[in-house]
């Protein structure tokens, strides 16, 4: 496997200012707070976390759909944060996004063909070539070509997601950011889409950044997995390593909380107490200390460093 880094993210931060109503003090939500990661060419990096952990915001920052408050993102060695609008437009073709909701992410008034064609138009592709590319893409994602004149509402959720995938593939991007691409789908359809994504990767060598809340899905599809909590990366390791030797207490709890469809899998349950604190007033020190079963005095004060414990296994915890 190639180990070249396609994406290198350092100290990425996104703070949102939220007004609490007229004349009230504005508060700052730290949606993403100092995230660093690298994505290697050809791999799938999974990012997992519960709602409000900043995983989707991270994806949008990397797509530059949102502007970061701080930090750098190097794509093939270039800092994308410094790209001008026109440069960004030119380079968009290298990184594309697959969205969560296959119902909302397709324009209801455009035919399938037009939807998939749209990215091709942005690079001014000739009509004949465009049509050929659209047929190829439809074939790649398993939608019969005869359906190209239909509207999105004529398709089921799974088929729509295939159309969304075809659109993302249209420009042969190098990196695909998939934001919860299967969360809205039924299990049997989910499996179809996961297989499709993996087949496409094998065939075309895409790099995926796979964002999801479902740890079993993320683990299944990813080579490496990063676990986020309240805007920060808690742990990042090879997928199997993370599953077999989770080091961070949050990862351990998260793993044990997944309901497994196997009645013989009697595992030790770690049920976390309490709720996820609000990101506009995150706990001091380690953000997880309010729910951590092994938190100490130090965790309340000192933010743990995100450091490499083993080869390629990073964790942010004082107690490891």
């Amino acid at each position: 496997m190639a180990t070249e880094e396609i994406l290198k993210v350092e100290g990425l931060k996104k703070y949102f200012e939220v007004s609490n109503g007229f004349l009230r003090k504005k508060s700052i939500v730290k949606a993403v707070d100092d995230v660093s990661l690298t994505v290697k060419r050809g791999e799938t990096l999974g990012i997992v976390g519960e709602s409000g952990c900043g995983k989707s915001t991270t994806g949008r920052l990397l797509m530059r759909l949102l502007d970061a408050t701080e930090g750098t993102v190097h794509f093939e060695g270039e800092n994308i944060m410094e790209w001008s609008r026109s440069e960004l437009k030119k380079r968009r073709r290298d990184f594309q996004m697959i969205f969560q909701d296959p119902f909302a992410s397709l324009n209801p008034r455009m035919k399938v063909e037009e939807i998939i064609e749209e990215p091709l138009l942005t690079i001014g592709m000739e009509k004949k070539e465009r049509k050929e590319r659209v047929s190829q893409l439809l074939q790649d994602v398993g939608i019969p070509e005869s359906y190209k004149g239909r509207f999105p509402h004529e398709f089921s959720g799974g088929q729509r997601q295939r159309i969304g995938i075809a659109r993302a593939l249209a420009l042969k991007p190098k990196l695909i950011i998939a934001d919860e691409p299967v969360a809205a789908l039924d299990v049997s359809i989910q499996a179809q889409i996961i297989n499709l994504l993996m087949d496409l990767q094998k065939e075309y060598g895409f790099t995926y950044l796979f964002i999801a809340h479902d740890l079993s899905v993320v683990q299944y599809i990813s080579d490496r997995v990063g676990v986020m909590y309240l805007g920060q990366m808690m742990e990042l390791a090879e997928s199997d390593e993370l599953y077999e030797h989770p080091l961070h207490p949050y990862t351990q709890a998260l793993l044990s909380a997944i309901p497994v469809p196997d009645i013989h899998a009697k595992k030790e349950k770690i049920t976390l107490t309490g709720e996820v604190p609000s990101p506009d007033n995150p706990p001091s020190g380690c953000r997880f200390h309010t729910r951590c079963p092994i938190a100490t005095e130090r965790c309340k004060q000192e933010v743990p460093e995100f450091r490499e414990i083993k080869n390629g296994h990073y964790v942010a915890c004082h107690e490891v």
């Binding site: 437009k89 969205f99 992410s105 749209e118």
Partner: peptide, 14 residues
């Protein structure tokens, strides 16, 4: 703020 508008932006549509 629809997702498909965001999708279009992500593809570099003007």
């Amino acid at each position: 703020n629809s997702l498909f508008i965001e999708a279009a932006r992500s593809m570099g549509v003007s």
